[in-house]
Nucleic acid binder design. Structure first.
Lengths: 233, 233
DNA sequence: CCATTAATATGTTTTTCAGCATAATAGTGA
DNA sequence: TCACTATTATGCTGAAAAACATATTAATGG
């Protein structure tokens, strides 16, 4: 699965990626020592219980990270977009992965092994602060999400998920269609509801002309209304 | 509210506290530059929307951290025990507080302002890693909790909360009574249910002889059973 | 110490949503 | 291409939990 030193240039070039915080020497070092991995749609990057191997940066593609709860029902806790970091939390909490990561489309990731990661954190305080920022942002997201998922009703949860997907992956050229191709089941697992209810509620939103649906493509027609539904709960 | 340089010795002496990672010089510096703050039961440490001022370490007491959701209903996202860190997440995510912290009993905290905090993180990689560990652990907790709160049924959620309180604050000398004094409302806000349902379900647990209740004191009678209820959902 | 308010307790009603069933449609592999 | 499977769609039923109502008990302040 893992091929050495191919095709993560984007990770090293993008100003959005955490590697932009490295010194030229460190960057050179990482370029030499990292690995790349390629995954096809539905491939598993890591599973709950696996030992973390280091820092994974998504170079290309989309990933869902979920936990299995009661009755193997999955709850998506994160959606990753390019240059997002994964897989290193457990290293620091000294535990194995508590979630599973699956590619939603063909995906390339960049891997920095744990020793190199620790080395960078120790040597470069900017990089360490970058890691802290990533965790702090993610924790904020998680706390907000906990409350939204537990307190909002189905319509509110689904509306919030759609807005979240829009914010995360953006819109297509029509400036309306959410740039992700998710099954109804994934949308349900993101929004803490059954697949039936995700389908049903999406249909309702469509009939209310808040969104329009064409297969798995979801177009936001009335953003204000969608935001209102989300805010109201 | 804030008095300078009094009574946080514990924070500087405990091997459990993050300050144990500081060099003697840094420790001296923090001892000189920190502040102490004293709060009575129900006092607010910080509110959702407030600007973070630095790192808060709980020296003595107990604190709940919650977010207000739909209809001002509060969801507790964290319970802090001595030497736990608070209030710095927003500094790194560059946003204001997204939650409110309230003292559950008389409380002493130690405050390191943000400039000093940044200085320590930049200078001492062990300290930086300590901060990373705190965030990583908290994020793991939050993710687990999201799934438990959304997927488990009332009994499972309440059982889990009781076990969580036991693990966080420990047991009294009888090795059974949970060492915290919480209102039913707080228990409900921790467990994502209405106060009525918290009261009702606690009564049920008592009648099933899983716990026994004496006012706000909760004694765990059948730990195995409680764990089973929590695991089952 | 009493009056007032807050917290706890418990019963009843209503809403929300999960669970199940069934059908139609879309995807996939031999 | 056709058979087979997965996904989407929709209706119906029942369980779970919120909302509401009303006592009862405990805590608090004048």
């Amino acid at each position: 699965m893992i091929q050495k030193n191919i095709d993560c240039e984007k990770c090293f070039a993008s100003p959005d990626a955490i590697f932009s915080l490295l010194t030229p020497e460190e960057l050179e070092y990482v370029k030499k020592h990292h690995s790349c991995a390629y995954y096809k749609k539905n491939d598993i990057l890591f599973k709950e219980g696996d030992e973390p191997i280091g820092l994974l940066m998504l170079s290309d593609g989309k990933i869902k990270v979920f936990r299995e709860g009661v009755g193997r029902r999955e709850q998506i806790v994160r959606m990753v977009k390019p240059f997002g970091l994964m897989g290193f939390r457990g290293l620091f909490a000294t535990e194995n992965h508590i979630a599973t990561a699956v590619a939603l489309e063909d995906t390339v990731i960049c891997i920095v092994d744990k020793d190199d990661l620790m080395k960078l954190i120790r040597e470069n305080s900017n990089f360490a602060i970058g890691i802290i920022q990533a965790l702090a942002t993610e924790l904020g997201f998680s706390n907000r999400r906990t409350v939204a998922l537990t307190q909002k009703h189905i319509r509110g949860r689904l509306a919030e998920s759609l807005l979240f997907l829009k914010d995360t992956y953006g819109l297509e050229d029509d400036d309306a269609t959410i740039k992700i191709y998710l099954s109804r089941e994934d949308i349900a697992n993101l929004s803490n509801m059954t697949t039936s209810n995700a389908i049903r509620t999406l249909s309702t939103f469509a009939s209310e002309e808040v969104i329009s649906i064409s297969g798995r493509k979801i177009k936001i027609i009335d953003l204000k209304k969608l935001e209102r539904i989300s805010a109201l709960g």
